[in-house]
């Protein structure tokens, strides 16, 4: 058996009966064979001047010592006014999120895609991670990339993506939000990725000899480890 894609009538029926919750649904024009999704108000970019490279082993240990520590590597831009744009420059990557809060039941999943109009300007809304698991609850995070030649102004509230909904043949045993490894469930704002939270890096960190010294240095001199990273990285690769 194969998953079945929902028709427009089925989507409307599911929305009317609250089997699927997409809120706020601002306009009738959002609903068709797919659901158009609007851009939210928060954008997250990496602070390039502070982060030399991504070291998931180090980040895993850092985050375990202080769950809030990673915030300092990111900058959040909040645009509440619908007439103020976040300008995405050519080649720039930023995270955004949907204005809509989406609650899918355990048997319905989604596939995120860009809208063709924006795609023709070079706007990518996801980077190979467009699958929304059955049982997803929360906003959907966009991985925005301007692959075009000109800067693109992004206004909160504009329709930039669409969600194709599919129904599984039977209810999934583990809806996304109930899985132990679901890192991005029930968020209401843009949140950055945390690949280093995977258990593999915990294992790698425990077996890595460089962990204790780095962690110790970070605890004694917060902030210095970032500056120390490049030298250490080079010495390891050489």
């Amino acid at each position: 058996m194969k998953p079945r894609i929902l028709t427009d009538s089925e989507v409307v029926y599911a929305l009317l009966t609250n089997a699927i919750v997409v809120t706020p649904l601002l306009s009738k024009s959002q609903v068709g064979a797919t659901l158009d999704l609007r851009l939210g108000t928060e954008f997250v970019v990496k602070k390039m001047d502070r982060l030399t490279h991504i070291d998931p082993i180090w980040f895993n240990q850092l985050e375990r010592s202080d769950p809030e520590v990673m915030v300092r590597f990111y900058e959040t831009v909040k645009l509440v006014d619908p007439t103020t744009a976040f300008v995405l420059h050519p080649g720039q990557f930023a995270l955004g999120c949907t204005l809509e809060y989406i609650d899918l039941p355990p048997q319905i999943g989604g596939m995120l895609e860009g809208r063709s109009s924006w795609a023709r300007e070079g706007l990518n809304v996801h980077s190979t991670a467009g699958l929304i698991h059955p049982g997803h609850k929360g906003v959907i995070v966009f991985e925005l990339l301007n692959a075009g030649s000109h800067p693109i102004p992004l206004y909160p509230g504009i329709r930039v993506a669409q969600l194709l909904l599919y129904e599984l043949d039977s209810v999934t045993r583990q809806p996304y939000g109930l899985r132990d490894d679901s890192k991005y469930s029930r968020y209401v704002a843009t949140n950055f990725g945390r690949p280093w939270a995977d258990w593999e890096f915990e294992c790698l960190g425990q077996k890595s000899r460089r962990r204790p010294a780095e962690l110790k240095r970070e605890e004694q001199h917060p902030g210095e480890s970032e500056r120390a990273q490049p030298e250490q990285g080079r010495s390891e690769t050489s």
Partner: peptide, 21 residues
């Protein structure tokens, strides 16, 4: 708090586009 701010933002964008819609 987050729900409040999310809700307020949604409402603001809703009212901005409402007349046109």
């Amino acid at each position: 708090d987050l729900v409040i701010s999310k809700s307020i933002e949604g409402a603001q964008i809703l009212s901005f586009y409402q007349d046109f819609d």
